[in-house]
């Protein structure tokens, strides 16, 4: 601080740099760089990388309600699946196969699902809340299974043929277009969320997580904050679902499963709740591990992810990102 007052120009530079960093430009840059590295390192595995991007959107959306608002939910795949089916049904039944429109439809159906599940889940607290979230995801799953005329039931919804993006970039066999499209979506959403969580509304959400009673005493409505966050979260998850529908051209019932919900929560905690970076790092680590290990033996994979989860809860409750960040800042403070 003393340096800042003596040297004006460097302080100005510093604050601009800091503001850029805060605005998420560094994060956006990191997404692009890591995405490019992935593109060149694993050109034959772009489908996995695209799936990672779609799931990262789901985990980011879960982070909004769990990390920033403190709502523990085991039913968040409902929002993702709603987006996937929304985009898929738009393409397969209504002939809306323009990718951007499909994504928009996904975001809309996702936020509608967010509104519905938010209304149900937010009625209770603690154990009852968890059970409600589980019931919601199962209800969505069974409903999608039953409405097989629209969703294809357990066979999955096929016949999704997205057109070229802007009429220029065809979706190719190697999934290059889908991957780049996904990366762009992720970057845009990340920057938008970065702005959101730093806005007054984001602060209010954090306030709800820390102390509900105080927020109520301040005159804000806790439930309305949470519900609005659920709708935003639904839009983000819906975009992820739409991306998965566009890139794989099929929507299965597994996108509405309890397993996916639980996995998303595991990824979030692995990376660290309450931080957008944590959500993305957790997704990357989890899915990369899953891909390599379950190829060897799916049960070894379960054992290892279980042990990892227990270890994270016991020794690094802030997750990989949160604990590393805490460690780095302690080092810095120690030096200064």
């Amino acid at each position: 601080m003393t340096v800042a007052s003596t040297d004006h120009s460097s302080a100005a530079n510093l604050s601009i740099a800091r503001r850029l960093a805060d605005g998420g430009l560094i994060g956006a840059l990191a997404i692009v760089v890591i995405g490019a590295i992935g593109y060149y390192l694993f050109p034959n595995n772009l489908a996995l990388l695209t799936r990672m991007t779609a799931i990262a959107l789901l985990v980011l959306s879960l982070d909004l309600v769990t990390g920033y608002c403190g709502v523990a939910t085991l039913g968040h795949a409902a929002l993702f699946g709603a987006g996937a089916y929304g985009a898929g049904i738009a393409a397969a039944h209504f002939g809306i196969s323009e990718p951007l429109t499909m994504t928009l439809v996904g975001a809309l159906t996702g936020s509608a699902a967010g509104l519905v599940s938010g209304v149900v889940i937010l009625r209770a607290h603690g154990l009852a809340q968890l059970v409600l979230s589980i019931a919601v995801i199962h209800l969505f799953h069974e409903a999608a299974n039953k409405a097989s005329a629209w969703t294809g039931g357990s066979d999955g919804l096929s016949g999704i043929m997205p057109e070229a993006v802007f009429g220029l970039f065809e979706f190719d066999l190697w999934g290059q277009t889908a991957y780049i499209y996904g990366l762009v979506l992720l970057t845009v959403v990340f920057v938008a969320l970065r702005i959101l969580v730093r806005s007054p509304f984001g602060m209010l959400a954090r306030g709800v997580r820390e102390d509900r009673i105080r927020i109520t005493a301040m005159g804000a409505s806790v439930n309305s904050v949470l519900l609005r966050m659920y709708v935003i979260s639904g839009a983000v998850a819906g975009i992820g679902g739409a991306l998965s529908a566009i890139s794989t051209q099929v929507v299965g019932l597994d996108s509405l499963s309890f397993t996916l919900s639980a996995e998303a929560l595991v990824m979030l905690v692995l990376g660290g709740t309450g931080s957008l970076y944590g959500a993305m790092i957790g997704t990357m680590v989890f899915m990369w591990f899953e891909d390599t290990l379950s190829a060897i033996n799916p049960f070894h994979w379960l054992t290892i992810i279980g042990a990892l989860l227990v270890a994270v809860v016991l020794f690094a409750p802030k997750g990989l990102y949160g604990s590393t960040a805490g460690f780095v800042s302690r080092l810095r403070r120690g030096r200064g």
Binding site: L265, V266, V269, H300, L302, I305, G306, A307, V310, V313
Partner: peptide, 16 residues
């Protein structure tokens, strides 16, 4: 949240 995660972790380990 902590309890849910820890016990899910234990479940995964037991299954594996």
């Amino acid at each position: 949240l902590t309890q849910v995660l820890m016990t899910i972790g234990i479940t995964f380990c037991v299954i594996g």
